[in-house]
Design a protein around this nucleic acid. Structure first.
Lengths: 221, 221
DNA sequence: GAGATATTAGCACGACCGTTCGTGCTTTTT
DNA sequence: AAAAAGCACGAACGGTCGTGCTAATATCTC
């Protein structure tokens, strides 16, 4: 099963494998772009091959099946997302400021069109959230992971005493994610960036309303 | 152009066109269901024909093109949405209570799977928000309409003095919509209804935080 | 009744889909 | 130097797609 070699398994000094992995990377780079705009269903092996000057069977051989190509595309998008959104705040010490920076990082990620179709996962979750199968399963796992990240940071901010101890971290995480994600389709649908500012204000407002010190330094620029 | 007769033009007593409209309704009833789960791209004339025991050319003739079928599907979904979400609160007098009831009506609409794939427009907006064309245009118009409805009700609640006069109705509408819409994918992805409760709490919290009388009767059951 | 009109069926078309197969070519292993 | 492994290729497969034609079938007007 060739598809299972898509990730993992380093430490091979095989030039053929390296060349193959390079091809797969090329395909996936294009695939995440297409999927973020048109969805995972719009991925077609023939189209990718034509776009990249490869043969259809060559692209197919690199993944083994269309579904494996879609799964590999999701994994590739996950890495890009993590680099773009989580990367910039990785060094930040726990606390309310980190929560705010993460939200701002997400908005910047959507705004900058790291994926040409806006947030990859907004598009793809909507596409598969009602269609049971391996794709929905991996998307659900990704969502859980992202949610757990936000939740963890909020909990840390309660731990540092910057958010009230009786605040519900689950509700806060749900609200923050909702505000971020909703800015995305509105900005795309109207080709207008003001939803990002509105989401930013709403995020700050929610955090302030749960803060122990509403005028604290976490909200000074 | 046969497709343009899909809506409007009542008062015809011609049995032939009545029969045609009945067929179109049958097709659209199935089409909105499919599109809410798999998207507008997954609509296929042949599949609809097979499912409904019609001929492919018969279905095709009823709409004239695939794009017209997709547009008609969106229009049909708009009517269903309006009946399910706006209908129950139509008689309600303006005020904060009406805002709350509208949000609860939306949550009930998503929860009850009025469309089998959850909110039709969540699915379809994500699918087309980054793809310019007639479909995106009509979806943008629908979003604007929905947003204007929420905004108008919030403004009315400021007018009645139940929300603070210095509250920003745009920000409130943005936040409410974000909370509602975010419950949808999470409930679908995990086959779990608790996001609806979380969204409900967050909606009440936001309205309370902008209310002139935080313990007023608008929040008593 | 006859004739006009609108909806449906049947069929064929070119294009694209995912997939399979056999075959070179290059690199690694022995 | 010989053998094995892995990638990419071109050709072909059965299917489905949207979309045109033409004929058959309902319904209305007279």
């Amino acid at each position: 099963m060739a598809g299972s070699t898509t990730d993992g398994r380093a430490s091979t000094t095989d030039g053929r494998v390296l060349r193959g992995e390079e091809t797969r990377r090329t395909v996936l780079r294009r695939a995440v772009g297409i999927a973020s705009v048109e969805g995972l269903d719009a991925l077609s092996i023939g189209r990718l091959a034509t776009d990249l000057g490869l043969s259809k069977s060559g692209v197919f051989a690199g993944f083994g099946s269309k579904e494996e190509l879609q799964l590999a595309t999701v994994r590739a998008a996950r890495r890009i997302f993590a680099d773009a959104v989580l990367g910039p705040v990785r060094e930040e010490p726990p606390g309310l400021r980190k929560v705010r920076l993460l939200c701002e990082s997400w908005l910047a990620y959507s705004r900058a069109r790291v994926f040409p179709g806006g947030c990859f996962f907004y598009e793809v979750n909507a596409e598969y959230d009602a269609r049971p199968g391996p794709l929905r399963d991996v998307l659900a796992a990704n969502w859980r992971e992202w949610h757990a990240t936000v939740l963890g940071l909020v909990a840390e901010a309660i731990g540092t005493g910057e958010l009230r101890p009786d605040a519900d971290p689950e509700d806060i995480a749900f609200t923050l994610i909702a505000l971020l994600e909703n800015a995305n389709p509105q900005a795309l649908l109207f080709d207008d960036d003001t939803p990002y500012d509105r989401a930013h204000r709403a995020v700050l407002r929610r955090l302030r309303s749960d803060a122990t010190d509403p005028d604290g330094p976490a909200f000074a620029p």
